[in-house]
Design a protein around this nucleic acid. Structure first.
Lengths: 160, 160
DNA sequence: GTTATTTGATTAACATGTTAAATATAAGCG
DNA sequence: CGCTTATATTTAACATGTTAATCAAATAAC
C-alpha cells in the first residue's frame, strides 16, 4: 500500500524519475569522471598560467613548439590537442604577442611552419619551474605509484 | 668532437630546444593524458548524440535533470560540470526546443527551478540504450576491472 | 528597520570547441 | 598537359569555456 507521505513512492511533485531505468548513467560515468578529474587538476595550474597571461591551450602550443622545434600547423594541432580552426585563431594572437613566427614551407606551399621566438623561450623558462612544482605537489599528495598507474590506464584508454 | 652532420648536436636549424631542460613536460603529463583520454572516449559517443541533435553538455544537463528531477540552476550547473554563464545560454536554447521548463522558486525569488518535459524524457529513453551499448562495448574492450580501477583513481584525483 | 553584505542568475567580452564549407596547393591519372 | 582527387589551412557560424561586471533578491549587521 502506498501513502502520500512516503518519499520513495510519493506524488513525484518534483518531477523526479519514476523508476531506476537508467543504470549507471551519471554515477561512475567515465566521460564525466574524466572531465571532473581534469577540472580538478587544471584548477591547480590555471591561476599560475593566468599570472603569465596564458591559458591552457596557449601553454600547450608554446610548450610543444619549445620541445619539438618548428612544426607545421597540422602536426602542431595534433600534438597540442587543439582543432585546426582553433589553432588558426591562436596563431594570430600568438603572432601579435610576438611569441611565434611563421614561414611558408618551400617544398609544399600549403604548409605553414611555426616556431617560437626567444621571448617565448623566456616565458617557458619562467613557467616551467612553477609548473613542475605544482606537478610535484600533485604527485606527492596523490602518490607517485598511483600517478603512474593512472597514467598507464589513461594511455590505454586513449588507444581504444 | 662535433661534426656539422651529426643530427644530435648539429646546427639546430629547425629551432629545436638545445638541451633536455624540460623534464616531463609533455611526456606523461597528467592534464594532457586526461584530455587525450577524454577525447578518445567522447569520440565514441559524439556521433550518436549528434544524430539526436545533442552535444555533450546538453546531454549531461538533460540526463541529470532526468535523474534528479527539478533542480535550481546553480545545483544543475554544478552537477553537469558546466559554468553558470554557459548554462544560462543552454537554458534558452533547451527551452526553445521545449526540452525543459522553468519556474521561479516561491521561497527564494533569486532561484530558477528547472525541470525536463515529457519530450525530453522521450529523448532520454531513445538515447540511453544507445549510450549504454557504447559504454558496454567500451567496458568490454578495456576490461571491466581496469575500468573500475580507472574510475577509482579518477575519483581520487577529483578530490585532491 | 535601514544599510551593507552575500548569493543566484544574467550579461558582456573574448577565447576555444565543433562542424561544414571554401580556398589554395599538391599529387595522381588518363 | 588537363582534369580529378587529396591535403593543408582558413573562414564561417554557432556553441561552450572563462573571467569580470551587473542586477535583483535574500540575509546579516548595525
Amino acid at each position: 500500500m502506498v501513502t502520500g507521505s512516503d518519499p520513495l513512492v510519493g506524488d513525484n511533485s518534483n518531477n523526479a524519475p519514476v523508476d531506476g531505468v537508467q543504470p549507471r548513467l551519471t554515477r561512475r560515468s567515465l566521460p564525466i569522471a574524466l572531465l571532473r578529474a581534469r577540472e580538478s587538476v587544471m584548477a591547480k595550474f590555471r591561476p599560475m598560467l593566468a599570472r603569465h597571461d596564458m591559458n591552457e591551450q596557449q601553454w600547450r602550443v608554446i610548450r610543444i613548439l619549445g620541445e619539438a622545434g618548428e612544426l607545421d600547423a597540422t602536426e602542431l594541432a595534433d600534438r597540442a590537442l587543439v582543432l585546426a580552426p582553433s589553432l588558426t585563431r591562436m596563431i594570430k594572437s600568438l603572432k601579435t604577442r610576438k611569441l611565434i613566427t611563421l614561414r611558408k614551407d618551400k617544398e609544399d606551399g600549403r604548409r605553414t611552419l611555426i616556431s617560437i621566438t626567444p621571448a617565448a623561450r623566456k616565458l617557458i623558462a619562467e613557467i616551467s619551474p612553477e609548473s613542475m612544482q605544482i606537478y610535484r605537489d600533485l604527485e606527492k599528495s596523490f602518490g607517485k605509484d598511483e600517478m603512474e598507474r593512472l597514467l598507464d590506464l589513461l594511455e590505454a584508454v586513449s588507444k581504444l
